[in-house]
Design a protein around this nucleic acid. Structure first.
Lengths: 206, 206
DNA sequence: TGTACATCAGTGAACGCGCGTTCACTGATGTAC
DNA sequence: TGTACATCAGTGAACGCGCGTTCACTGATGTAC
């Protein structure tokens, strides 16, 4: 009989369920308290699993964090895709992308920071999917650059996209560092906007 | 007799000596291995002090790291001061400042990163001297902005200086992240240069 | 200069705790007849 | 449908280690006479 199939499937589903609960729990923990204080016990409790249970679906805590960050990257991809939907002007697209990025950083500051703060132990490489997700984000930025004729080759535009991303990311990142206090929400937005305008104007008149 | 004075001084000098050795040891440890793996035992060993000895000159490990970072900020101030010495053109000054910053980041990547990676425990504030050192760095950038007539008030120029700093810092920071590989040394420099040129051109034609 | 005593900077073994990971067990689920 | 046995996902107590910090002690330095 194919009853075996049904059984195996049921088992796999249960495993998937636990896995999903663990990732969701880890995400909630990070979102509330930050990556720095994430604990295996807190994740297990929140997932309504025994401590050992999480090790039946993930190799270690790093793998769980990686899954959370992968989800964040995917969410960011989605948000950026939606941000430029229906927008034609490439300069406007860039503005929308920055706005979308900022809104994500603000809505989920801990999840956002976790993507950049997390480090794998020395010598351990990130999974390919991680790099792919990052490349997808860069592609969002590279696309309007093509329309603006900034960068001749695909490779050049990717380099430029990364530079732009790093610059705007840096501005937002610093703005929430305690040691650089004093930048209000409106100031930050106007600084980002001014930066983009100047860059585009400078590039156009080159 | 004032023999007491001599004795007290001698004692103070010895204390200063130990303090100096501890900071130097901590700096060497961070410079070699990075902030993430600094250990009280390694610092004590390197300073040729017993483990408990470091606690006679510093309250805790955080205070030691803070002293190292303060030194780094001071070194950066010095480097930036030298970078613009004898330069008149404000645009050129900004280029020199970026160059100087990059050279520090490259010469001492771990010390450089430590300044930004270190976090004090929740609720503990940084010493005033730390903020002052940061303000001094910003002042280096704000000065040429005045000559370029970018920003009307002192406060505006400081905000702009911080934005510029964050942007360039962000580009350099990301360039050494494993997950964003593929940017050669020359590419990084040309990206920084192009960024500055575009910003200045865009600001001028505003 | 020499001796007996006092001080306290510096010592390092021990404390204490946090926390990731393991593993001997168990009870829920499935199988055989 | 019912009973005896097998499997193994999930349990949670225990392991093990790292490491910041403490504190009872000591020997180097200073003081008194």
């Amino acid at each position: 009989v194919f009853n075996n199939r049904v059984k195996a499937l049921k088992k796999a589903l249960k495993k998937q369920d636990l896995r999903g609960r663990v990732v969701a729990a880890a995400r909630a923990e990070i979102a509330e308290k930050g990556l720095a204080v994430i604990k295996a016990r807190d994740v297990a409790d929140r997932a309504k699993s025994a401590l050992g249970g999480i090790y039946t679906v993930f190799a270690d805590l790093d793998a769980i964090v990686l899954a959370v960050n992968q989800d964040s990257l995917d969410a960011l991809d989605q948000i950026m895709t939606e941000a430029v939907a229906g927008v034609d002007d490439p300069a406007q697209k860039l503005a929308k992308l920055i706005e979308a990025y900022l809104s994500f950083a603000r809505a989920e500051p801990f999840l956002w920071r976790a993507m950049f703060e997390h480090r794998l132990p020395e010598g351990v490489a990130y999974p390919v999917s991680h790099y792919e997700a990052l490349a997808r984000l860069m592609a969002h930025i590279a696309e309007p650059l093509r329309d603006l004729r900034l960068g001749e080759s695909e490779a050049q535009r990717f380099t430029r996209a990364r530079t732009l991303f790093s610059a705007f990311h840096g501005i937002i990142w610093m703005s929430l560092d305690d040691r650089f206090t004093g930048l209000s929400s409106e100031e930050l937005e106007s600084e980002l906007q001014m930066m983009l305008e100047q860059l585009l104007r400078g590039a156009r008149t080159a």
